[in-house]
Simulated scan of single mutants.
Amino acid sequence: MSDGRGVTDNVLGQRYGGGAPASIAPANEVIALLQRHRSVRSFTDEGIDDDTVTLIVSAAQSAATSSNMQAWSVIEVRDPDHKAAISVLAGDQAFIRQAPVFLIFVADWARHRGVAEHRGEAAEGVEYIESTLVGFIDAALAAQNATIAAESLGLGAVYVGAVRNRPEELADLLELPPGAFPVMGMALGHPDPTDRAGVKPRLPQDVVRHRETYRPAPDEAIVAYDDAVRTYYAGQGMSHGWIGTILGRIRSATTLRGREKLRAALERRGLPSK
């Protein structure tokens, strides 16, 4: 895809709901790829060969990792029955069944405990929240690299946070050992060309970008962004905005759909997060 200014302006107009910063320079191909990212939840019947997944995982492994701990693993699922069982535990979302490959990124300290045990060493440090955070961050960085790699190959992807809805059941299904915990899923496939989803607007930079110190976001900027999101969804026959979505998500613990119990689940799965 050309990285000319015309294409960049068009994508940035979508990304910022028509309010892109005028000072953004023409993008190189890497930045252009990042800017046109979109979640893909509708796939064709075309499969993905093993070499392609191997290439994507190599990109994931090239992500930054805290102190070279590499405290993550990824489970690749292709079997239709296995994907269907995962879908039931992850919000019963049809695109998980439809995607030819479903990846589950795992915060994995089981491997490190095994290394320590084999050498007669303790692994007390795994029990602290710092280690839990490192595992989740490492997994997230790896997953982001995997997404960009997949998109560079013409594939589509969508993250699935719902793998944390019933994480202990999913861990049993995947035969995860103690110290390994599902962080996020990722459906991979060839995008359906009839899919109407586009580049979704993001908050304006003056809301997320702070200079020197933090400052509250002006409400008028939030309202303007909410309008941009409503316009985006209206093009897909939907009517919701951003404000209502976030209020619905944070209003009470029940909106977390089981994830309000994650701390207890982490402890039972060998990550007490002290």
Rank of each mutant, 00 (worst) to 15 (best):
V77P: 00
P201A: 04
A234Y: 02
A90C: 12
A60D: 00
V7H: 14
R111L: 14
E29I: 14
G17D: 11
D9C: 10
Y232F: 10
A22S: 12
S39Y: 11
I243S: 01
P26K: 11
V207E: 02
D227G: 10
E175S: 15
P193T: 08
R202K: 02
E76N: 01
M69F: 11
G258N: 03
Q14L: 15
A123R: 06
I86N: 02
E127D: 14
I24W: 09
D108A: 10
Q14N: 14
A157F: 04
V158Y: 00
Y159Q: 00
G47Y: 04
D192F: 08
A162C: 05
V11Q: 07
E124Q: 11
A27S: 15
E151A: 11
A157D: 08
R215Q: 14
Q205F: 02
G17K: 09
V115L: 13
D51H: 03
V183Q: 04
E168R: 14
D172V: 15
I222C: 02
S23D: 12
A187V: 10
E220M: 09
Y232I: 09
F43S: 02
L174H: 07
R249S: 05
Q236G: 01
P178E: 12
E127Y: 03
I104L: 07
W72C: 03
A221W: 01
G154Y: 13
N28K: 14
L33H: 13
A265L: 11
R196F: 05
A116D: 11
I243V: 12
T54N: 05
R111T: 13
G6M: 14
Y16F: 15
A64P: 01
E117C: 08
V207F: 07
A64Q: 02
R36L: 12
A32V: 07
R257Q: 09
E76F: 02
E76Q: 04
A139L: 08
A180Y: 06
Y159T: 00
D206M: 06
T255D: 01
E175I: 13
A228T: 13
V115T: 12
A25M: 15
Q14E: 14
I75G: 01
R36F: 08
I86C: 05
N145D: 03
